[in-house]
């Protein structure tokens, strides 16, 4: 049986045992990390975005230090790479990709969607980013500059999108419900729905 055919549970057990035997990570540390990762979902990032739309102080903190902003909302960030937040404006739109692998801000967005890890997304995001996001129906006006952020090293990046027009006076909960993972990767733009 080749490695690729081995049941993944058995592989995980074998690697866990090796990591423990070598003193790199104890089984309960691995279980804890899996538990934390399983709990994360795009709803967390959406709550951060909605708060940034309504609280200028939180917005400033989030842009200056995403990790601190996430921790201030009770999101566990210990031991994780720093979270960088990319601010969309009327002039600039951001899209995040990891061309080398699948780096993703899991603490605030959960597991990456399957397409984020695909060779097609990763190569087209740097070659033809406007054509790529047009497949989600995202067409930027010519006046908006696109910045593709290739997450190659030690940061994990999320996009702080523009607040949709016509949402004045909405509650944080109502606003958070407008934001999904694609909006925080930058392939889509939140709308009033």
């Amino acid at each position: 049986m080749s490695l690729l055919e081995t049941p993944s549970g058995k592989l995980l057990d074998a690697i866990s045992a090796l990591l423990a035997a070598k003193g790199i990570a104890a089984p309960d540390e691995i279980a804890e990390r899996i538990r934390i990762t399983d709990q994360a979902s795009p709803a967390r990032g959406a709550q951060m975005v909605a708060r940034a739309w309504t609280e200028p102080e939180f917005r400033a903190q989030m842009l200056a230090n995403g990790t601190l902003a996430a921790e201030s909302m009770g999101i566990p960030m210990r031991g994780l790479p720093p979270l960088g937040v990319l601010e969309d404006t009327a002039e600039v739109h951001h899209v995040v990709v990891c061309t080398l692998c699948s780096c993703y801000p899991r603490a605030v967005l959960g597991y990456p969607p399957f397409w984020f890890k695909s060779a097609a997304y990763r190569s087209r995001a740097v070659r033809d980013p406007r054509g790529l996001i047009a497949e989600w129906g995202t067409v930027l006006p010519d006046s908006v500059k696109l910045r593709v952020v290739d997450s190659t090293a030690d940061y994990r990046w999320m996009v702080l999108p523009l607040r949709p027009e016509g949402t004045e006076g909405w509650s944080v909960e109502q606003l958070a419900a407008l934001v999904d993972e694609g909006d925080m990767i930058g392939v889509t733009i939140p709308t009033r729905g």
Binding site: V126, R130, L146, V148, D150, A153
Partner: peptide
């Protein structure tokens, strides 16, 4: 396909 004015921003 790239459009002038757009950019890639990469950690190096």
């Amino acid at each position: 396909e790239g459009r002038a004015g757009d950019a890639l921003v990469v950690e190096i």
